[in-house]
Design a protein around this nucleic acid. Sequence first.
DNA 1: CTATGTGCAAATCCTTTGCAATCCA
DNA 2: TGGATTGCAAAGGATTTGCACATAG
Lengths: 147, 147
Amino acid sequence: MEKSINEIIKQMRSQKYKLTPQREKILRVLLENKDKHLSAEDIYYIVKQKALEIGLATVYRTLELFLENGVIRSVDFGDGKKRYEMGNQDKEHHHHHHAICLNCNKIIEINEDLLCELETQVHKEYNFKIENHEVKFFGYCSECDHK
Amino acid sequence: MEKSINEIIKQMRSQKYKLTPQREKILRVLLENKDKHLSAEDIYYIVKQKALEIGLATVYRTLELFLENGVIRSVDFGDGKKRYEMGNQDKEHHHHHHAICLNCNKIIEINEDLLCELETQVHKEYNFKIENHEVKFFGYCSECDHK
DNA sequence: CTATGTGCAAATCCTTTGCAATCCA
DNA sequence: TGGATTGCAAAGGATTTGCACATAG
C-alpha cells in the first residue's frame, strides 16, 4: 500500500526537516505522476507551471532528500539522466521491472515479482521481443555485510 | 569462445575501417583487462602510460566504433560513467551479471545464465546480501517489432 | 530567533563536436 | 592521393556547490 501524502508529510515533520512549499509541491507532482518516471528537469518545469517559483538546484536537493528517506526511488534507463518515482527501494516493497523499447523508447512496466519466468514469459505477456537484458543486484558483499 | 585480437583486427580491416595504432592499443587494453570494467578515462590513462599519445576524444570515438561493431559492450553501474568490456550484447552470447557492493563498490561477476535462481541463489553462492535488484530488458515492443 | 532551506550563478563531471592537421590504405 | 582519423579546445548536458538572502518552526 502506498503512503498517502499526509503520511509522508507527517514523517518528514517528525524528523528535522522543514516542510517548505517547494518540497510539498514536488511531492505532489511525484504523487500525481506515479506512472511517468520524471527527471529532475521534468519536475522542475511542472512545478514552475503550477505557479511556484523554484530553482532547479532545489529540485535536485529535494529529490536527494526524498531518496535518502525512502520516499522515492530512482531508476536509470541509461539515457543519461536519472528518473524518479514514488516508493522506496526496500526489499519488502514491491519491485516492478521496466521493459524499454529500443525503437520508441516506451517504457513498459512489468508487474512480475518472480524473475524466474524469463524472456519467454515477458514475451508472452507483453509481446515484447527481448534483445538484451541487464540485471543489477545492489547489496552488501560478504566482507561488508557485517559492518 | 572469445575472439582473438587478430580475428577482431581482421574483422575491422574487412570493413571500411582503418587500423590505427590508437585503435589497436585500445583493443589490447580492453583484452588485457577483461575483468576490470574500465571507463573511457581509465583506458585513456592506461594507453598514455603505454607510451602512446592519444586524446580522450579518440578513446570515446573508438569505443563508440567498437560498440557499434559488437566488439565490446557497455555496462552501467549507476556511478555516472559508462564502463566497457569485451564481448557483444547479442542474445546468442553469454551474459554475465554484476553484483555491486553498496559499501566498497566492488563488482562481483556472477556467471549464471538462468535468472530464475534469484536472491537465495546469489546469496548462497557469493554470500552477497541483496538489498535491491534491478532488471532491464532491451528489445522491441509489439508495435515496433515488425519495423 | 536561528538552523534550515532557497535561488542564482558558477563550477564539475562525463561526453560530444568542430576543425585543421595528419595518417592509413 | 583522399577520405578516414586524430588531437585539441570548445561546447554540451546533467548535476553539484558556494553563498547571501529568506523562512519554517
